[in-house]
């Protein structure tokens, strides 16, 4: 009961912080950048334009969007400090933090889904398909579940990162590590980038099967969120 109340309180706090202009700006970026990317790729070559656009979206747009939307509820603080205004009234620190991470993840998931679907639609609608292209419907359906899954994994990692450093600077290092080594070897399995590439049909780190990649993402999300909650509790 206390856990549910605390997580709900954390979520309410996070939602309140997301109801600002910054969140609207992020949503705008989530809409505009994929359109530009898709148009550029489509102009380059219509065949495989959606794959290339999706690749760019998962390379840059999804991590940065989720980073921004995960940071907004926490502010420029360590996650432990961000949950204190609720924890001081008897709410459980760890579960309040989980509420924050969940809302950051949900916001990131919606924005990523929007970005990915827009990219696919703009790249594919009205353009002739290449011989190796999937159908538009298959592309959209795949995007619908991959984008939120990846976004939640990122949010959990950023939440965990936010428990390090006096102003939660650890999340910045997570983002940097993801950009630098996120698709290489073991890091590719642990960090969301590698699994995301695997799921959208790019490189597979450590030759993890595509089907297992989604399981890996779910497991990484759960473990990161749990460690994040434990670190906030201590």
């Amino acid at each position: 009961m206390s856990a549910v109340v605390s997580a709900r309180a954390g979520a309410r706090m996070a939602i309140a912080r997301l109801q600002g202009r910054a969140a609207i700006a992020v949503a705008f970026v989530a809409l505009v950048v994929p359109i530009i990317v898709a148009l550029v790729e489509r102009r380059e070559a219509t065949a495989g334009a959606s794959d290339r656009a999706l690749s760019t979206v998962f390379r840059f747009v999804v991590p940065l969007l989720t980073f921004s939307l995960s940071q907004l509820p926490i502010g420029g603080k360590n996650l432990r400090d961000a949950v204190w205004p609720a924890a001081r009234f008897g709410l459980h620190r760890g579960f309040v933090a989980l509420g924050h991470v969940a809302v950051g993840g949900a916001a990131g998931a919606i924005a990523s889904l929007l970005a990915a679907v827009v990219a696919v639609l703009v790249a594919r609608l009205g353009a002739p398909s290449g011989p190796s292209d999937m159908t538009l419907a298959s592309d959209v359906v795949a995007t619908i579940w991959i984008a939120p899954l990846v976004a939640f994994a990122y949010a959990a990692w950023f939440g965990l990162g936010a428990t390090f450093g006096r102003s939660g600077g650890g999340r910045g290092y997570v983002l940097l590590a993801d950009f630098l080594v996120g698709s290489l070897g073991v890091f590719g399995v642990l960090l969301p980038r590698g699994s995301a590439y695997n799921l959208i049909g790019l490189s597979a780190p450590l030759d993890v099967p595509q089907r297992a990649a989604s399981g890996v993402l779910v497991a990484v999300t759960i473990v990161c969120a749990a460690v994040c909650a434990l670190r906030c509790k201590r």
């Binding site: 206390s2 709900r8 309180a9 204190w84 205004p85 009234f89 008897g90 709410l91």
Partner: peptide, 20 residues
């Protein structure tokens, strides 16, 4: 002073008292 951030002061107080 730090209140839990919520939609309104009433919601913030409600959130604070939810664990009492």
């Amino acid at each position: 002073p730090a209140l839990p951030l919520a939609a309104s002061v009433l919601a913030s107080v409600d959130l604070a008292t939810s664990a009492w």
